[in-house]
Write a protein that binds this DNA or RNA. Structure first.
Length: 504
RNA sequence: GGCGCGGUAGCUCAGUUGGUUAGAGCAGUGGAAUCAUAAUCCACGUGUCGGGGGUUCAAAUCCCUCCCGCGCUACCA
C-alpha cells in the first residue's frame, strides 16, 4: 500500500455562484479521503477546480459590468478563502482559464477531430429567440419555451459533434467488468439503462457563446463548457504538461461529485477518455443532496446554508463531523442546526469530550498524570478496540466514510462502557495492578481513536494529541501507529480545557 | 409518459447474497454509580417493515400490482 499514487478530485465548481453546503460537503468528503490516504502512506494528488467558461458567466459578468475573467478572479479568491477556512488540504486548484488547461483542451479537441471522433455537423433543435437558447425537446409542450412560455422555432446551427454513440458497447462492457466504477451502487441501474437505450452524439461547440475556449481550427466556435470542464481532471494531473506526473497519477482513483452531474462523469467523460485512449478513473462516487430543515435549499427561500457561517458558529470540525455523521455518505439528507446541536451535545461533548476528560482526570488523580505500565495480558477490551479499528480502516478504503465515522463513535461508546464496568475508582482502593491496566487501555484506546478520527476533525485531533502529552506531531503519524501499544508508559499527559464546552 | 431512487419504532435512520422472538442513535420513563463538561452506565418499544397479491419450509429482504414522495429525461453545468 505504501507509496501508491492516489489521485482524487472534486468537481470543477462553476463560478457564477457562491459556495454553499453542497459544495462544501463534496470538498470536505474529498479532503477526508485525501487525509486518510496520506495517513495510509499513499502519495496523494487531491485536485479541486473551478469551471469558468460559458454563457452564464458571460451574462453574469455583463450585468456586473466587468469582464468575465474579472468576475472569475473575484469568485476564485473567495472560494480559496472558504476552502482554507474549512481546512481543505488540496494539492492543486486548477482553473479552466489557466494556460495549462486551455492548451490541454485544445490538443484534445484537435486530436479527436483528426481521429474522426469529433466532426462537423448541424445541430437542430427548438430555439427560443427571446431567451437566445435551445430548449430540451422533451420538456417542450405545445411548442412553447419551458422557461418563458413563448413560441419556439425549429432552427439548425452548425456545430461540432463528439461521437458519443460510438462508445456505447465499450461503456457497457466497462460497467460490467468494473463493478466499483459507479458508487454508490444505487445509482448504477439508471445509468446502464440510459446507455443501453442508445446514445446520441454530443454537440461540443457553440457559436452563440463567446466566453470559452475557441475551437483551434474554427474560431467562430467555442468549445462547449462541459467538454472543456471535464478535461480539468487530466490537465491538472499533468496530461500534456507533465508526462511523468501524469503517468504516475492517472488514472485517478476517485472522482467525487454530486448526483446531479453523475451522467457527465460516468457516460460522457469515460467516452471522451476512450476516444483519447486513456484509462478511466477507478471510481466515480456520486453523493446525495442536502435539504435544509426539511425543505429544498434555494436562494428564493433564503435558506442556503453558508459553510463559513457554520464553521464560525460551531467550529469547522463540528461542522465537518456533522455532515458525515448525520447522513450516510451517498444518499440525500437533511441539514438542521437543531440536529447539529444535538449531535454536538450528546456525541461530541458527552461521549467523546467527556471520555478524554474523565480518563485524564483519573490518570492525574491516581498516577500523577503519567501513563502507567500496562499489563501484558490481552484483554477483551483491547481485542474489541483492535477489531473496531480494523473495520474503520476497511470502511475508509471503500469510501464509506459515514460508516467509518460511525465505527469510531462505537469505539468511543465501548471505552465509556469499559470505564463503568471496570470502575477504576474502586480499583484505586482494591487492585492497583488492575487499575494500571485499565487506565493504560483507556488512554491507548483514545490515542488510536484520535488517529482514526483525524481525517474528519484535524484540529480536534491535534488538540487531543496535545492533551495526551505526545511529543511527536500527529501529522507525522501513519497507519502503522494505530497498532496497539504505541503509547509509551511514563508519558506525562497534559490535561486541558474541555474539547467541546457545553455552554452553547 | 419513460427510467431511476426511496417509503422500517415519536424523530433520524441501519438492515449484505431471503433464515433464530426486526435493530441503532436521539427523545421519554425508572434505576446504578461518582472518575468526568449533572457527563456516564443499565433496564424498558403491542413497530400492519407504504397497501394488496404471489413464490418458499422460511421474506423487510425475491416476483407482480397499486398508492405516496423525490430525482433524471442529455447539450443556458
Amino acid at each position: 500500500m505504501a507509496g501508491n499514487k492516489f489521485c482524487l478530485t472534486t468537481p470543477a465548481y462553476y463560478v457564477n455562484d457562491v459556495l454553499h453546503i453542497g459544495h462544501a460537503y463534496c470538498t470536505i468528503a474529498a479532503d477526508i479521503i485525501a487525509r486518510f490516504r496520506r495517513f495510509a502512506g499513499d502519495d496523494v494528488l487531491f485536485i479541486t477546480a473551478t469551471d469558468e467558461h460559458g454563457q452564464k458567466i458571460e451574462d453574469a459578468a455583463k450585468s456586473a459590468g466587468i469582464e468575465p475573467i474579472a468576475l472569475a478572479d473575484r469568485i476564485v479568491a473567495h472560494d480559496k478563502k472558504v476552502w482554507e477556512r474549512l481546512n481543505i488540504s488540496y494539492d492543486d486548484f486548477i482553473r479552466t482559464t489557466e494556460e495549462r488547461h486551455v492548451r490541454t483542451v485544445e490538443s484534445v479537441f484537435n486530436a479527436l477531430y483528426e481521429k474522426g471522433d469529433i466532426y462537423k455537423g448541424m445541430y437542430e433543435g427548438m430555439y427560443c429567440t427571446p431567451c437566445e437558447s435551445f430548449c430540451v425537446e422533451s420538456q417542450v409542450k405545445d411548442n412553447k419555451c419551458p422557461d418563458c412560455a413563448r413560441e419556439l422555432e425549429r432552427i439548425k446551427e452548425e456545430s461540432y459533434f463528439f461521437k458519443l454513440s460510438k462508445y456505447r458497447e465499450k461503456l457497457l462492457k466497462h460497467y460490467e467488468e468494473n463493478p466499483d466504477f459507479m458508487k454508490p451502487h444505487s445509482r448504477k441501474a439508471e445509468m446502464i439503462n440510459i446507455v443501453e437505450g442508445g446514445l446520441k452524439d454530443l454537440s461540443v461547440s457553440r457559436t452563440a457563446v463567446k466566453w470559452g475556449i475557441p475551437v483551434p481550427f474554427d474560431k467562430k466556435h467555442v468549445i462547449y463548457v462541459w467538454f472543456d470542464a471535464l478535461i480539468n481532471y487530466i490537465s491538472a494531473a499533468g496530461y500534456g504538461n507533465d508526462d511523468k506526473k501524469f503517468s504516475g497519477f492517472w488514472p485517478a482513483e476517485l472522482h467525487l461529485i454530486g448526483k446531479e452531474i453523475y451522467k457527465f462523469h460516468v457516460i460522457i467523460w469515460p467516452a471522451m477518455l476512450f476516444a483519447m485512449g486513456l484509462e478511466l478513473p477507478r471510481t466515480v462516487f456520486g453523493h446525495g443532496w442536502w435539504t435544509v430543515d426539511g425543505e429544498k435549499m434555494s436562494k428564493s427561500k433564503g435558506n442556503v446554508v453558508d459553510p463559513v457561517k457554520m464553521a464560525d458558529d460551531y467550529g469547522v470540525d463540528v461542522f465537518r463531523y456533522f455532515l458525515f455523521r448525520e447522513v450516510p455518505f451517498g444518499v440525500d439528507g437533511d441539514f438542521s442546526e437543531k440536529a447539529l446541536v444535538v449531535r454536538y451535545n450528546t456525541e461530541l461533548a458527552n461521549d467523546l469530550g467527556n471520555l478524554l476528560n474523565r480518563t485524564l482526570t483519573m490518570l492525574e488523580k491516581y498516577f500523577e498524570g503519567k501513563v502507567p505500565q500496562p499489563g501484558d495480558s490481552k484483554d477483551e477490551f483491547r481485542d474489541m478496540m483492535e477489531k473496531s479499528g480494523a473495520r474503520t480502516v476497511e470502511y475508509y478504503n471503500k469510501y464509506e466514510i459515514s460508516s467509518a465515522l460511525s465505527e469510531i463513535m462505537k469505539s468511543v461508546g465501548n471505552a465509556n462502557r469499559y470505564i463503568e464496568s471496570s470502575a477504576p475508582w474502586k480499583l484505586a482502593k482494591e487492585n492497583r495492578e488492575k487499575l494500571k491496566e485499565v487506565l493504560y487501555d483507556l488512554i491507548e484506546a483514545i490515542r488510536i481513536i484520535t488517529l482514526l478520527l483525524a481525517p474528519f476533525m484535524p484540529q480536534t485531533a491535534e488538540k487531543i494529541w496535545e492533551q495526551l502529552g505526545l511529543e511527536s506531531k500527529i501529522s507525522g503519524m501513519t497507519i502503522r501507529d494505530i497498532s496497539w501499544g504505541g503509547l509509551k508508559p511514563g508519558t506525562k499527559v497534559n490535561k486541558g480545557l474541555p474539547l467541546f464546552p457545553k455552554d452553547k
